[in-house]
Simulated assay, not measured.
Amino acid sequence: MKDVPIGSTGSFTLLVGPQHLASQFKDAILPPVFATPMMVLAMENAALNAVRAFLEPGESAVGTKVEVEHLAATPAGHWVRAEAEVVGVEGRRLRFRVAAYDEAEQVGAGTHERMVVDLDRLESRLASKRLATPVLPPTRE
Results as ranks from 00 to 15, higher is better:
M1Y: 03
K2T: 04
V4T: 07
I6Q: 01
I6F: 08
G7V: 04
S8H: 09
S8R: 04
T9N: 07
T9E: 15
T9Q: 14
G10M: 07
S11H: 12
F12Y: 14
T13W: 02
T13M: 11
L14W: 11
V16I: 11
P18C: 00
H20R: 04
H20C: 04
L21Q: 02
A22I: 09
A22M: 09
Q24G: 13
A28M: 04
I29C: 05
I29Y: 11
L30R: 07
L30C: 04
P31G: 03
F34R: 03
A35P: 08
T36D: 10
P37G: 06
P37C: 09
M38V: 09
M38A: 14
M38G: 02
M38T: 05
V40S: 09
V40D: 07
V40I: 15
E44V: 01
E44R: 02
A46L: 12
A46Q: 08
A47I: 08
L48Y: 15
N49T: 03
A50D: 03
V51N: 06
R52T: 10
R52H: 11
F54S: 03
F54D: 06
L55Y: 08
L55E: 06
P57N: 01
G58I: 01
E59S: 04
V62R: 05
V62T: 09
E67A: 13
E69V: 00
E69T: 01
A73F: 12
A73W: 10
T74S: 12
T74P: 08
P75N: 04
A76W: 05
G77A: 10
A82W: 07
E85G: 02
V87Q: 04
G88M: 01
G88P: 02
E90L: 12
E90A: 14
E90T: 10
R95P: 03
V98P: 06
A99W: 13
A100V: 04
A109Y: 00
A109S: 11
A109L: 10
G110W: 10
T111N: 02
T111D: 07
H112M: 06
E113I: 03
R114S: 04
V116D: 00
V117R: 00
V117I: 14
V117C: 01
V117F: 07
D118H: 01
D118E: 10
D118S: 04
L119I: 10
L119T: 09
R121N: 05
E123K: 11
E123F: 12
S124F: 10
L126M: 11
A127E: 11
K129L: 15
R130H: 14
R130T: 04
T133A: 10
P134T: 00
P134F: 09
P134N: 02
V135R: 14
R140Q: 14
E141F: 15
